Amino acid sequence: MNSHFVGIAELVETPPVAVVVDVMRAFTVAAWAFAQGAEKIVLAESLDEALALKAAHPAWVALKDGPPAPGFDVVNSPGLLRSVDLGGRTVVQKTTAGTVGALAVKEASLVLCASFVVAEATARLLRTRECDDVTFVVTGEGGRADEDLACAQYIARRATEAGTDAAEFLRRAAGSTAAAELTQGVRQGVHPDDVALCLELDRFPFAVVATLEGSLMVLRPCVAPSPNDETSI
């Protein structure tokens, strides 16, 4: 598998397969939303679009980065989201980096939204689909966020070498600027457990697949077949 690692601004054309990585915290939060029962996640281009979608669908749950704000139900924090019942709900998500990265590759034939909590499931799906050429979009810090790059590199390695040890990749993520800012309270809308939750390797058994449904980019969980089971769920 040929792997390419780029920032959002470096995307000059739509890749055939894209893995969009946001560890702290968009796609850790997305995975938690599905674990809390969400049916799907709709990615919004802007805060205004998120609010417009919420207004058009009052039962939907609007989620954003930073502190709570009028019109939004929850914030982009796994520690805060894990106590929210999202059974059967649709979540509208708008974040600073992760959702922007996913929308930038919305025309790709396969788009996966990844973090450490779904790393193995993501790698397994890449193997199952026999993806030969994969572009990893490193969303944080203009493509330089070490937590995102470390996760991307781990998934790329794991997709071809099942015995890859995650320890060094997790260590890099734990020492990243984003981890420090979350721990020190530089960012708002944070729970004290957020960093630890973002570093829980393979917490969930599903990958997160993004597809265009009409004009909307929609995330849904997807369980790739295990090595002994070729039946997709």
Rank of each mutant, 00 (worst) to 15 (best):
P221D: 08
V223R: 13
F5M: 03
Q188M: 14
E107K: 15
P16H: 08
D229E: 02
V138C: 03
E39A: 13
A210T: 14
A97T: 15
Q184I: 07
N2R: 15
A178Q: 11
R144W: 13
W60R: 03
A196S: 13
A108L: 15
P221R: 11
S232Y: 03
A179E: 08
R171A: 09
R220Q: 07
F34V: 04
V209S: 09
A52Y: 10
A26C: 15
V186K: 15
V118C: 05
P15M: 01
E39F: 03
R172A: 00
V21G: 09
K106Q: 12
V75Y: 00
A152E: 06
G175N: 06
L182Y: 14
F27M: 13
C222H: 12
I155D: 01
R129W: 01
D65Y: 00
G143C: 03
G98I: 09
V111K: 12
L53A: 08
V74M: 12
T28E: 05
E10I: 14
A162L: 04
S109M: 03
P225T: 07
V23Q: 07
A174I: 03
L170F: 06
D85I: 12
L47V: 14
A59K: 14
R158P: 04
T96I: 12
P221F: 00
L63E: 10
D229Y: 01
L110S: 06
L80G: 05
S109E: 14
E168A: 12
G185K: 08
L80D: 06
Q93K: 10
H4L: 06
M24T: 10
L53Q: 08
R129G: 04
R157L: 11
R89W: 01
E107A: 09
L125A: 08
I233A: 15
R187F: 15
I233S: 07
S232L: 15
G37E: 01
A123S: 11
A167Q: 10
G101V: 02
P67E: 14
T90Q: 02
V75A: 01
Q153Y: 01
T28S: 14
G7I: 02
E147C: 01
G87M: 02
A173L: 10
V218Y: 08
R171F: 12
P68L: 08
R158D: 00
S3Q: 11
A174T: 06
E45L: 15
L110Q: 10
A174C: 04
S232H: 04
R187A: 13
L53C: 14
A108K: 09
S226Y: 10
A62K: 03
